[in-house]
Design a protein around this nucleic acid. Structure first.
Lengths: 224, 224
DNA sequence: ATTGACGTAGAACTACTGTTCGTCTACAAT
DNA sequence: ATTGTAGACGAACAGTAGTTCTACGTCAAT
């Protein structure tokens, strides 16, 4: 672990100032704020020392973002966090959380509503999908239990009209007029919808009456 | 006290976004950040709503300072929110991802190993648990399918020796010498372990031979 | 003496970001 | 129909703030 004594006087001052500034204001200072407070005339010098502090593991910076500073360790070297050199500053993505799935009702189109609940998800849960194509659905009831999805689970779905074999999709079945989540397979001229539970029988339907609404990217369950 | 219902949907979204942004980044978002996240095209509209939030007592702004925002009350109207400065807040929490569950093998103790895989999770998935008590487990095989947990799922578990009724726990069963995930209930002198699937029968075991390893906080599934 | 690493300066440059302003719509009151 | 208000939009503007570049001095190693 880096020793605090390796920091120069200036760097300690800077660190101390950032801490107190954040405490006072609720947001970090600018480079020029720091300079003024620590008697450094040149912004480049502040910048230089800031970068030093980053290397030493005390700070994280967001490039080009004004006030893009974050304390990682305090001036006493306490971090409470592990090695932390590569702490990925992963940002989360907000996707709209549509109301509970109601049987017999097609899934909502996410691009329309802007005003419903939002949840944060990790980019990794989107599997590379465009965030704007993705929406979340809170599952109500146990009708999806065959797909190992239970009451209260949140599923992330990427809008799609088509599906490939083996994908877990949300499909609207005309004859039952309901939406369910099933594994999708083409089987000759028909579509086979396979529940996850091995003891359950698959459903065979005509592609004409089976409308794929989207593909399930991931499932989130908080067992509260 | 101002009523939260006086805020428009947009304003609530904005507030929520600011909160999560600060939590993620350690500093507040810009007006344009907010707009992008809440679907507002115009900076002036964001500015307008920001001022509304200030009047409503949810925010404080520092004029002309970029990212000059500070939360005064959170979106639920709760103030007393600690100034949120000194503690570096990281967006995601890293928990160690232990190897696959192997039957007959007690769960590993997370505090020991430092060097195994880490995964990022959202703080919200920890349900307030202390991150250092939490570890992740990748489930192998379909033995947990009764608990709606399938092959490849990742479960977040908080270490615990005891459990309360209704909690989904990881238990080590001496007589079978295996670890499984089941819903935990005390039933007289015995412990009833209830599978999630309604058609499955519960297991009754003696508390002496049933060791709770931890409580499942959440389940994560990426349907790749 | 020469070199190179390190810290410091100053200033110019570019980008980022808050502010302002004219315009537009919807809706209720006049 | 007219007016007023709240909310929204987009573009332009100006102030703010990070980055880069050149230069200078110190100090230890060569």
């Amino acid at each position: 672990m880096k020793d605090r004594t390796k920091l120069s006087e200036r760097q300690r001052n800077i660190l101390r100032f950032i801490e107190s500034y954040i405490e006072q204001h609720g947001f970090p200072p600018t480079i020029r704020n720091i300079g003024a407070a620590t008697g450094i005339e040149s912004t480049s010098v502040v910048n230089y020392n800031l970068n030093k502090l980053v290397s030493a593991g005390y700070l994280a910076r967001e490039s080009r973002a004004s006030r893009g500073l974050r304390l990682v360790k305090d001036a006493n070297g306490k971090s409470g966090r592990r090695a932390q050199a590569v702490q990925p500053v992963t940002s989360t993505i907000q996707v709209s959380l549509a109301g509970p799935i109601a049987a017999g009702q097609p899934l909502p189109i996410p691009t329309d509503q802007v005003s419903d609940d939002l949840i944060d998800v990790l980019p990794s849960m989107l599997n590379g999908a465009n965030p704007s194509d993705v929406f979340a659905l809170r599952v109500k009831g146990d009708s999806m239990i065959d797909a190992m999805i239970g009451d209260g689970d949140i599923v992330l779905i990427r809008h799609a009209e088509t599906a490939r074999d083996g994908e877990l999709v949300a499909v609207f079945l005309e004859d039952r007029s309901e939406v369910t989540l099933k594994y999708f397979y083409r089987d000759g001229d028909m579509v086979r919808l396979q529940p996850a539970h091995p003891t359950m029988q698959p459903i065979f339907v005509d592609p004409k009456v089976c409308h794929v609404q989207g593909r399930v990217l991931s499932v989130l369950r908080l067992t509260v």
